[in-house]
């Protein structure tokens, strides 16, 4: 513990760099993942696409059972085959985006499906187009649940970003792995504790965001 403290007070800039890298990778991944997941989720929830939704969700679910370390491996293979960099930022972000899809997709689908059919019927009966129904009724009502999905995805992504240090993406996984390899307990503690704090902090922040984004009429 003491060594860890001494290391941080001697090299605060290193910890800051790891933390910033970590956050940056996670944010890029959640940003792209959110756009992708919500769009896809809305798309497959449309009427008549139920079989597609079933297959997509099942695939996403299976993807989650693939261990993240394995995922990095599979992606490295794929990327190097198509001539892209198999290590560093790119494979890390792609893996993280894919990994975050299940909670986002699942929550988007359930949230939209849960909207009371009477509300859709009322909207249709008043002359709303499909587009207006989506943006004025379905999405606002689905928002809290979609946000909860984003929060799950974000916590997941922060955790897996730590593992991404193995493929050279940087972040708070770097001191953990360095420490494990060289039996430097101080580095393990620094990495482990900081990444835990980061995860808890982001989780708390997103919980607040979730509450804040809920339309006032829906708050309990």
């Amino acid at each position: 513990m003491l060594e860890a403290y001494q290391f941080v007070s001697r090299h605060p800039e290193m910890l800051a760099k790891w933390a910033v890298d970590h956050l940056w990778i996670s944010l890029v991944a959640i940003g792209i993942g959110a756009v992708l997941g919500i769009t896809l989720g809305v798309f497959i929830t449309a009427k008549g696409r139920e079989p597609m939704a079933e297959v997509v969700l099942y695939f996403a679910e299976i993807m989650m059972t693939v261990p993240s370390l394995a995922f990095f491996g599979l992606l490295m293979l794929l990327l190097s085959h198509i001539g892209l960099s198999a290590i560093g930022f790119l494979p890390a972000v792609i893996t993280l985006i894919l990994y975050g899809q299940l909670p986002i997709l699942r929550n988007t689908c359930t949230a939209i499906r849960q909207v009371d059919p009477a509300l859709i019927e009322a909207g249709r009966g008043m002359g709303m187009s499909q587009r207006q129904l989506l943006f004025k009724i379905k999405l606002p009502l689905a928002l809290p649940v979609i946000m909860a999905g984003l929060r799950n995805a974000m916590v997941l992504i922060i955790g897996i970003t730590a593992i991404a240090a193995l493929i050279g993406a940087g972040g708070l996984g770097v001191p953990i792995f360095r420490g494990l390899r060289n039996a430097r307990m101080d580095l393990i503690i620094i990495g482990g504790v900081s990444v835990s704090i980061l995860a808890l902090l982001v989780d708390g922040l997103m919980a607040m965001l979730e509450r804040w984004i809920t339309p006032r009429g829906l708050r309990g």
Partner: peptide, 13 residues
């Protein structure tokens, strides 16, 4: 158009 379930939009005033 008015329906039995009323269908007031809960997120709107």
């Amino acid at each position: 158009y008015a329906i039995q379930d009323i269908g007031l939009f809960p997120h709107m005033t």
